[in-house]
Design a binder for these strands. Structure first.
Length: 925
RNA sequence: GCGGAUGUGGUGAAAUUGGUAGACACGCUAGACUUAGGAUCUAGUGCCGUGAGGUGUGUGGGUUCGACUCCCUCCAUCCGCACCA
């Protein structure tokens, strides 16, 4: 074999390892470039072909930037805390650390096979104590900070305490859930327990009794982004609402900055839009309604305060705290029945039941703050307790949901829009002129909103307000395999562990299940099993999966630092990630949380940038291509695709390893399953059995999973790298189909022949006169590849390489100078292949990657003539080679003189002739 | 329902600021060579038509000398959100 990829690839992998070729360090003489992959969870099944897509892309770009002279940081690590290892531990009793270690080894060997240029000395693992020490440390900083809305950043709790001591909390503007107001004197009179409880309402990491998504099957709570359509993201188990004391992160405080920050970063619109949606900002007003015979006013949030005179009833969430107090005796029974029913409903049920209108009248009345009218108060579960104030003012003429509710329960509908018919539906557009609205009469929507807020504020019945859908993130999990909290309890009061005792390591326990009384697994640990123990007990919860992944990109900069999570000088050198590649499924989880932590660390001055990922590319999902055989119903006879017509058949998934280019390997198929051993076949006329195919998600049950290992075995890593890039644009989802991989492999072989004789000896010559054609091909290729890489168009580069090799082959090019440069162009894609040829053609020492990326020179591409497409009425008819020195008029004259032109004009006179020099001629007649 | 993305040959796709639609591959057809290999080489391959030619980038319209590209309408597929007040 001429091109022995197996030998070559293992040779260069060991060379790179032996020479530490990819070790990087800070170098102020060079400009930095930080390329990052989303690190994987090391699962037991290893890498599938979808993973490397992003890794190959980032590796190509990392190598390209390195050749261009950048100091490239390109690290890799493992998000190694996670459920599967723990589930496995529960089943087998084996410590999850052991399983994790094994899985990581497998991942590492798969990654090594692909020839990535990672600096493995910088590897991080979220589950290693050296790493999670700093996750715990960051948690401590969050615990010790609150969000000051005046300075618009996180500040220390000590600053807050000073403020409390000086002024109480009356003038404070800070994100909190504190329900009481107190003066400086009152603060001082509180005992330490009460003080701590109050401070807790301000901390960015805090304990609170909150409604959480509880997944009984997983035995843990889940964050909102881990719940999809009422089921757990992992495993698809049902999720119910439960009130529990949990650690939370006050991410809501950052809602506005997380929203604004999106304008500064280069992410796709769809991703930014998803985050905007998730944050869910709405601007409006809060309005206070007095309740007849009740001391507290009812606060609602509305985005349409201009429609305040259209209010015809109020609706509270069934869980609203006022309900029990204000419901009249007569309505008590019905209301409490309704409440009970809605608590039982899971969020999923509430969602799927959008069409059914339900609700119950409390019998109480609110007083309209501006008109003084009496307004019925209802409860209904379309109002969510967790959004806004859990209460709405219903304006049926302007809101379809309120309209339907009013119709259903026969509540009067007041029309406050001029010349608008609301007999069939509400007027939901933000248009129209108000009427029957006192001082708002004649106002447009925008004027009405402004004026109504002014009036409400001046009368003390409300004020302008912005609401966010984003909720604080639950931060504890009732699990073993996660970061322990640096927290112990004294009299059930949480206390932080001093820095010197970090990390708090996971203690040994006898079983990874919850305790019989429902405590998390850590409650099983003996006091002596903890490497640090204080107070009455340690925290039994562990941190969620997103804790470690929210800051790992920073640790890569300084992975071995024992004194800081990252040194200031190193984070100042490497700064943000310049290019981040990974899947879109992290839109509202990891990518939001990482932004949040980055902003926090920025606020506290630990880093100098507040967005983690400047440019982000979402690689598309790789779908599987399944193959089918067609069995004639109730028989053991299989009919080829071309002869199915009309027969009654069953499609059966067949393992894709038995199929090549839709052609079934019949012998292998017979051996695949016992029941097929005696199968008979109806074949195509040429004797083949052709399978059907369909694009589906990759899954074991569909026999369409493709691991990179087989392909590397068969074609080599360089072929796989080129092929994955060749498939299409990186961000597009596409079916995985090995059909076509041979084309890419053949390209490498053809390229090899350009450099070497069949014996593997270089056939290149140094030439004094470099052929013009070869130079032209080379520089055309340099230009195209550089441009394409700069716009992340990785697929088109591969075509460009193919064209170049085709042209060089045709030119019989054997010029060392030209082909030497071409190797550098190709090297980011096929590093082993290029290193080998680079050495063979005479570069004896070192690695190709120490050289420089070729620079494009226009000189070699300049032509003196051009093959003009000559079109008539916009249709290209023929081509004419004309000198580029001709001006418009001269070109026109030349073209008009031509025989072909006369023929196409067919005696008619051109009305107009458009000449774009160097581009096109268009004759209009 | 709202928001985002995508629609180009038998297949993956290309066409970067409007300027030769289908590059480059796969597959297929015919042929050459070879020890009948998944090797290599040659020719062909959007569709209709023997041909000249016609036609063609999801649909219908518009702007333009010229539209895959810009504008409007509709359709389909995928993704996200969804009683959010």
């Amino acid at each position: 074999m001429e091109y022995n990829f197996r030998e070559i690839e293992s040779k260069w992998v060991s060379f790179w390892q032996a020479n530490n070729s990819y070790r990087v360090s800070e170098d102020s003489a060079k400009e930095k470039y930080y390329v990052l992959d989303m690190f994987p969870y090391p699962s037991g099944s290893g890498l599938h072909v979808g993973h490397p897509l992003g890794y190959i892309a980032s590796d190509v770009l990392a190598r390209y930037k390195k050749l261009q002279g950048y100091n490239v940081l390109h690290p890799m690590g493992y998000d190694s805390f996670g459920l599967p290892a723990e589930q496995y531990a529960i089943q087998t009793g084996q410590h999850p650390a052991i399983t994790t270690e094994e899985n990581i080894k497998r991942y590492r060997s798969q990654l090594d096979q692909l020839g990535f240029s990672y600096d493995w000395e910088r590897e991080v693992r979220t589950s290693s104590p050296e790493y999670y020490k700093w996750t715990q440390w960051i948690f401590k900083q969050l615990f010790d900070c609150y969000y000051n809305e005046k300075s618009n950043k996180a500040e220390r709790i000590s600053v807050l305490i000073e403020e409390f001591e000086a002024n109480g909390n009356t003038n404070l503007k800070a994100s909190n859930d504190c329900e009481i107001e107190f003066t400086s004197a009152e603060w001082k009179s509180f005992d330490s327990k009460k003080k701590e409880a109050i401070l807790h309402n301000y901390r960015l990491a805090y304990l609170a009794d909150s409604w959480v998504n509880w997944c009984p099957n997983l035995g843990t709570v889940l964050a909102n982004d881990e719940v999809i359509n009422g089921k757990s993201e992992r495993g698809g188990h049902p999720v119910v609402q439960k009130k529990m004391r949990q650690w939370s992160m006050r991410i809501k405080a950052y809602a506005e900055r997380l929203l604004e920050g999106l304008n500064e970063i280069d992410w796709t619109d769809s991703l930014k839009e998803q985050q905007r949606n998730w944050i869910g900002k709405s601007v409006g007003s809060s309005v206070l309604f007095d309740i007849e015979g009740y001391e507290n006013p009812l606060e609602v949030f509305t985005t349409r305060p201009d429609t305040i005179f259209g209010v015809s009833f109020m609706v509270l969430a069934p869980e609203h705290p006022y309900v029990k107090d204000i419901t009249t005796e007569k309505n008590k029974e019905a209301v409490s029945k309704y409440q009970k029913a809605s608590v039982k409903k899971s969020e999923r049920d509430r969602q799927s039941d959008v069409k059914t209108i339900t609700g119950e009248n409390t019998g109480a009345f609110a007083i309209h703050p501006l008109s003084g009218d009496k307004i019925q108060i209802w409860i209904a579960d379309y109002v969510l307790a967790t959004y806004g104030t859990g209460a709405v003012m219903a304006v049926p003429c302007g809101d379809q949901r309120d309209y339907d509710f009013a119709r259903h329960f026969d509540i009067p509908i007041k029309n406050i829009f001029q010349d608008v018919d609301i007999s069939e539906a509400a007027h939901t557009d933000k248009t129209g002129i108000l009427k029957d609205s006192f001082f708002l009469n004649g106002c447009s929507v925008a004027e009405g909103i402004k004026k109504s807020i002014e009036t409400l504020e001046s009368k003390g019945f409300g004020k302008g307000k912005t609401n966010y859908r984003l909720r604080d993130a639950v931060f504890s999990r009732q699990r073993y395999w996660g970061e322990p909290f640096p927290i112990y309890y004294k009299d059930e009061l949480p206390c932080v562990v001093e820095d010197q005792y970090l990390p708090i390591e996971l203690p040994k326990i006898d079983s990874y299940l919850p305790t019989p009384d429902g405590e998390p697994p850590l409650a099983r640990a003996e006091k002596s099993s903890w490497n640090y123990f204080s107070g009455d007990r340690m925290e039994f919860n562990t941190m969620p999966g997103w804790a470690g992944s929210s800051w790992y990109f920073l640790r890569y900069m300084d992975p071995k630092n024992k004194n800081e999570f990252v040194s200031k000088s190193k984070s100042e050198y490497w700064k943000q990630v310049d290019l981040y590649i990974g899947g879109a499924e992290h839109a509202t989880g990891h990518l939001l949380y990482a932004r949040f932590w980055t902003k926090f660390l920025f606020d506290q001055g630990y880093i100098t940038f507040d967005e983690p990922f400047q440019k982000l590319i979402n690689q598309g999902m790789i779908l599987g291509k399944s193959s089918f055989v067609y069995r004639i119903a109730d028989s053991n006879t299989f009919v080829t695709k071309g002869k199915v017509n009309g027969k009654e058949i069953q499609s059966i998934h067949v393992d894709i390893s038995l199929v090549e280019n839709n052609k079934l390997n019949i012998e292998a198929f017979k051996e695949w399953r016992k029941e097929y051993a005696n199968a008979t076949f109806i074949l195509e006329d040429n004797g083949d059995y052709i399978c059907g195919d369909e694009v589906e998600k990759m899954s074991k049950s569909k026999f369409n999973v493709q691991t990179p290992d087989d392909l590397i075995q068969k074609y080599g890593a360089d072929t796989l790298r080129l092929y994955e890039m060749f498939l299409g644009p990186i961000e597009q989802s596409k079916p995985w189909d090995t059909k076509g991989i041979s084309g890419v492999h053949n390209f490498l072989r053809k390229c090899w022949r350009l450099y070497c004789s069949p014996e593997g000896v270089s056939i290149l010559r140094e030439g004094q006169d470099v052929p013009k054609a070869a130079l032209k091909t080379l520089h055309k290729t340099i230009k195209k590849v550089t441009d394409d890489l700069d716009r992340y168009s990785l697929n088109t580069c591969v075509s460009t390489f193919m064209i170049a090799v085709n042209e060089f082959t045709e030119q019989k090019c054997n010029n060392l100078e030209v082909l030497d440069k071409f190797l550098i162009l190709l090297a980011p894609y096929a590093p082993h292949f290029c290193e080998e040829l680079w050495m063979k053609i005479g570069n004896k020492e070192g690695s190709l990657f120490e050289s420089n990326f070729p620079i494009f020179n226009q000189e070699y591409l300049t032509e003196d003539s051009f093959d003009y497409p000559i079109s008539f009425n916009g249709k290209m008819r023929f081509k004419a080679n004309l000198s580029l020195s001709l001006d418009r008029a001269e070109v026109q004259r030349e073209v008009e003189r031509m025989e072909m032109t006369k023929r196409w004009l067919d005696g008619k006179t051109p009305k107009k002739v458009i000449v774009v020099p160097g581009k096109i001629v268009n004759i209009v007649f």
